[in-house]
Computed example of a mutant assay.
Amino acid sequence: MFRFICLCFAAYGACSPVWSADKWLTDYAADIQAKAQANNLPGYAFAYIEKDGPASVVLYGKESKTGPAIELDTVFRLASVSKTFTSMLMAKYVAQNQLSWQMPVDNLVPEYPFSKTAEAPLLLQHVVGQSSGYTPNAYDNLIEANYSVKRVLNMLSDLEPLCSPGKCYTYQNTLFAVIEEYFSHQGSSYQQALNKAIIEPLGMPHASVGKQALMASEKWAKPHVAISRNRWHTTKVRDDYYRYSPAAGVNASIEDMIVWMRALLGEEPNVIAPSLIEQVTEPRVKSKKELYRRQWRKYLSDAHYGLGWRIYDFNGHQLNYHGGWVKGYRAEVAFSPEYGVGYVMLMNAESNLINEFTPDFWSRCFEHLEKMQLTAKAQQKN
């Protein structure tokens, strides 16, 4: 059975002893549990966060088949949800005039002449904004084959772009290595920079970067892959995408992700300024392919990529979203700036059910919030 928790912080007061989640949310939790049980999922954690209010958390399953139950502080891999951290880290550096979104990548990493094959310079904003122009997911196969980062970047810099930088949406992982290389040139690392700028100031107690940090966590969810229909097997944590930490190297618990979501909802303006949140979630390049995702397409009428975020028009509401997937894990995060609510789901299994769970959640959530809004307006008139 799943466990439903009202998680409060001192700043928001104590949860009422008679607290109970709204029916739409308990129904959602029950429905996804039924599907998880039918598919024998190892475990997951999800949270619904209201700005300046309590977080409703659901914990389900175990770290592994014979392991302990998943808890608030159980750490998962975030995979490409890491890009939401990277975009904010870069935005903070830009705000401090340490970098510029218009800085050519050739200036960040002079040893890789990325602009030699392009009609226009490849800029930092094109890397973080997924508009480099290179073939989508270029050389991800080489990441998974454990080619060295330097070799992959050299090969990528020689690749002929499909379009000029900034002109088309072309999702990448390998290219994010230039950010790690930049920090290396500064005598630092992405891990150190992220800890100093975001993780430590926000007080994310279990968040980290890298494989060693994951496996050193007191509690961490083991990765699972399908071996047959509804049968899952624990697998090893792979090094491959961890070597591209700005793209897919961050680890966090659901407790950490609630802290992260509260910051994105504007509760930590001294660490994450509202102007930076608006900056990274501004639509920049159209991502038409997203409109045809099977479980999402009936809800979406527009889709763009910003800076480390996907920006959807979901039944008339802006939804800022990102998903992540590496071997043995899935993760998704999304928030509505209109209503000041957010959602996080972390899984220790490569299950496509998450593709169904997230749009279903937002369909129910927006329907609930719209009804509340109409009720409030009617009461004001009376």
Rank of each mutant, 00 (worst) to 15 (best):
Pro113Ala: 12
Phe114Gly: 07
Thr117Cys: 00
Ala118Arg: 14
Ala118His: 10
Ala118Thr: 09
Ala118Val: 05
Glu119Lys: 15
Glu119Gly: 13
Pro121Glu: 15
Pro121Ser: 11
Pro121Leu: 10
Leu123Arg: 07
Leu124Tyr: 02
Leu124Met: 12
Leu124Gln: 05
Gln125Pro: 02
His126Leu: 14
Val128Arg: 01
Val128Tyr: 02
Val128Asp: 00
Gly129His: 06
Gln130Ala: 10
Ser131Tyr: 05
Ser132Ala: 15
Gly133Met: 05
Gly133Asp: 03
Gly133Ile: 11
Gly133Tyr: 01
Tyr134Ser: 08
Tyr134Asn: 07
Tyr134Leu: 07
Thr135Cys: 02
Thr135Leu: 09
Pro136Cys: 04
Pro136Asp: 12
Asn137Glu: 00
Asn137His: 12
Ala138Asp: 04
Tyr139Pro: 06
Tyr139Val: 12
Tyr139Lys: 12
Ile143Glu: 09
Ile143His: 03
Glu144Tyr: 15
Glu144His: 14
Glu144Cys: 13
Glu144Ala: 15
Asn146Val: 15
Ser148Lys: 14
Ser148Pro: 02
Ser148Trp: 00
Val149Thr: 13
Lys150His: 11
Arg151Gln: 01
Arg151Cys: 11
Val152Ser: 02
Asn154Met: 13
Leu156Phe: 01
Leu156Gly: 08
Leu156Gln: 04
Leu156Asn: 07
Leu156Thr: 04
Ser157Lys: 01
Asp158Ala: 15
Asp158Trp: 04
Leu159Ser: 06
Leu159His: 07
Glu160Lys: 12
Pro161Trp: 07
Pro161Glu: 06
Pro161Cys: 12
Leu162Trp: 01
Leu162Val: 14
Cys163Pro: 01
Ser164Gly: 11
Pro165Ser: 05
Gly166Val: 03
Lys167Pro: 10
Tyr169Ala: 00
Tyr169Met: 12
Thr170Pro: 07
Thr170Cys: 11
Thr170Tyr: 08
Tyr171Met: 08
Tyr171Asn: 11
Asn173Leu: 11
Asn173Ala: 13
Leu175Asp: 07
